[in-house]
Amino acid sequence: MNAVDLLFWLFAVLSVGGGLFMVFSRHPVSAAMFMIVSLVGVAALFVLLESFFLAILQVLVYAGAVMVLFLFIIMLLDVGPEAGKRKLSHFKTGIFGILATFLLVGILLILGNSYDSLALDQSIWPELSESKDGGASQGLPFSTKVSSFGYGLMTKYMLPIQVSGFMLLAAMVGVIILSKKTPAREDVK
């Protein structure tokens, strides 16, 4: 049990516990706060997996932009706790819990069945090799450098990055149109 292991367990507990508290917390604002804890925990796990760029992106995009947007909407709509409303019956909650457990067990069974073909059992983490040619000879090798991300995005994933750029544009235009006041829509109802 070394320090890195300790960090793994700390952040694993942080991310899973944050997720659990998020699911079961009454008030949406506290749920969002627990969600931030969970997202930061996942970002730290990305650091442990030596993907520093993605960890930074996780903090900036998820814990920063997305959760600020969530909190902004929660406060804009003034959503209170659900406690006053009819609560979900214990029967339904039990059914849903069983469904989620089935999902987990199914995934674990699939993992168990494909255990040999995954070749995970050597329990070693391969050493990162920083090849000089940018890895052009062996596809895209795993690397901690941001430049290899850029290389991959600009060569092999040229079309996907353009499509995702267009998707962001479409999302932006869609949000603007959705949030615009349309007097024509009033007489429809």
């Binding site: 997996l49 030596e50 993907s51 993605l54 992106l57 996780q58 995009v61 998820y62 932009a65 997305v66 947007l69 969530f70 909407i73 995970l120 983490w125 391969p126 990162l128 090799s129 890895g135 596809g139 895209l140 090798p141 795993f142 690397s143 290899s148 991300f149 991959g152 995005l153 092999k156 994933y157 996907p160 990055i161 995702s164 998707m167 962001l168 999302a171 932006m172 869609g174 949000v175 959705l178 949030s179």
Partner: peptide, 29 residues
């Protein structure tokens, strides 16, 4: 991605983050 020594998974994480951010924006609107 880390175990296989291949960056493709990392790049897919990047794309999933992009799609999730766009999805949240549209969903909240």
């Amino acid at each position: 991605s880390r175990v296989g020594g291949n960056l493709d998974g990392g790049i897919f994480v990047f794309f999933i983050m992009t799609v999730a951010a766009a999805e949240v924006a549209v969903g909240l609107a």
